[in-house]
Amino acid sequence: MTGQGPTVRDIASHAGVSIATVSRVLNDQEHVSPGTRELVQQAIDELGGRGPRRRPARTGAVFVRCPYLLTDYFGLIVSSIAETLDLHGRQLVLNAGEAAQHTSVLPTLANRPGIGGAIVVLPPEPGEELVALQESGFPFVIVDPRENVPRDIAAVSASHFAGARSLTAHLTELGHRRIGLLAGPENWLAGNARRAGHIAALAEAGTLLDPRLVVAGQPTVRFGFEAALHLLSAEERPTALLGFNDKVASGALAAAAQLGLRVPEDLSIAGFDDIDLAEATRPALTTVRQPLGEMGRIAVGLLIRLLERHRLDALHVELATDLIIRESTGPVGH
């Protein structure tokens, strides 16, 4: 054994655990059982009495991947990330735009020269790629995960469940029971959480979800318009519509206008996100405000701690939302 002490690979082999597990123990990270932690420490003692020296803080730019158009929702998050990174003296390398969805990026990040860490926004990549990147030891943070990720991957999101629950509860308090849900993509974590919050609020009001009142699709104005037309053309139409986001809700407003329905006298409509569009519609949209700027700032804070080799006590951060009541919702018509 050399005077430099055992390597991480030596320790992992001796303890019979993975290199990633040894790395977590050495960096004092969570999600390692006491028994495993003791096993690793025992291997270090038996191999020479001390483990590898803790590596210094990672330098280099931060790679920000947001494979979507940087308008409204995504633009606010990325702007906040950029401003906060600048405060920390970190350069930013931006990978954005819808074309970026077709580029394989995550498998190459750990080996890119000059890149110290990354922030990925609503990553379209499969979970296996995220896990592989984490196991490589490359520090990164996810903003608004599209699917469930392991607890030892740092992530920031809004409380989609609580936000949707408060919005539906607002409508049920106004007497609405037949509430159409213009849901987002069925494979999105946010969409599933919002649907669950909607169902919970309906149950509290003594109502079950009617599957015929749910239409899923992409979070666009066009989808909102077409889905609303479909639901509002039914023989027994809903008295309120909930859009997956404000764009979907604005499409629903256009559909209601085409059908000659008054909002909110004949139909209540609400959205989610509270982007600028929500105040620009007529009537202005009742919606749920997500703390988009704070999501970006906290993501940077988590990443900086990872880059500086600090332990993270909370790897999954869920931020509170606010119900914003405007003119597009009112008591159920008689």
Rank of each mutant, 00 (worst) to 15 (best):
L267E: 01
V214D: 01
F244I: 12
L285H: 07
A284Q: 12
F223T: 04
R262S: 10
R282A: 13
S268A: 13
L277C: 07
E294S: 09
M295Y: 06
F272V: 00
A252L: 01
L231S: 06
R282Y: 15
I275W: 00
G296M: 09
G217W: 07
V300H: 03
G293T: 11
A278W: 05
A240V: 08
E294P: 00
V248T: 03
V300P: 01
R289D: 12
E235D: 14
P264S: 06
L277F: 07
D266W: 06
L285P: 00
V214S: 02
A255Q: 10
G217D: 10
T287S: 14
A284P: 01
D276Q: 12
E236G: 09
L277G: 03
V248W: 08
R262L: 08
E236R: 15
T286W: 12
D266N: 13
R222K: 15
T287R: 04
A227V: 05
L232M: 13
R237V: 02
D273P: 03
T220P: 02
F272P: 02
L277S: 03
R297M: 11
L292A: 02
R289I: 14
L261T: 08
E226Q: 15
L292T: 05
G296I: 11
P283R: 08
L213Y: 14
P238C: 11
V214K: 07
R212E: 15
T286D: 05
V221H: 15
V215N: 00
R289Q: 14
L208F: 13
A252S: 04
I298F: 06
T220L: 09
P219D: 06
G293A: 05
L259D: 03
T281H: 05
H230A: 13
A249C: 10
L242P: 01
P291H: 09
P283V: 09
R289S: 13
I275A: 05
Q290A: 08
V248E: 01
G260F: 15
F225C: 00
F272G: 03
E226N: 07
L292Y: 11
T239Q: 13
F272T: 00
V214I: 14
L285K: 08
E236C: 02
T207H: 14
A255D: 04
P219M: 00
L232F: 13
L242Y: 11
V214E: 12
Q218G: 11
F225H: 15
L208R: 14
A240D: 06
G271L: 04
G271E: 10
P283Q: 07
R212Y: 05
V288S: 01
D276P: 05
V215R: 15
A270Y: 11
D273N: 13
V215P: 00
T220M: 09
I269L: 03
T239Y: 06
E236N: 14
P291F: 12
H230L: 11
N245P: 06
A257I: 01
A234D: 09
V263L: 01
N245F: 12
M295V: 02
T239C: 11
L267C: 08
L292H: 09
L231H: 08
A284H: 14
E226V: 12
Q258D: 14
I269V: 15
G293L: 11
P219H: 04
L261E: 04
S268T: 11
R289H: 13
G251I: 05
G206P: 04
L241C: 04
V300E: 10
E265W: 09
P211S: 09
A257K: 14
L208A: 15
G224L: 03
L259Y: 03
T286Y: 12
I269H: 02
K247S: 02
F225I: 01
A257T: 07
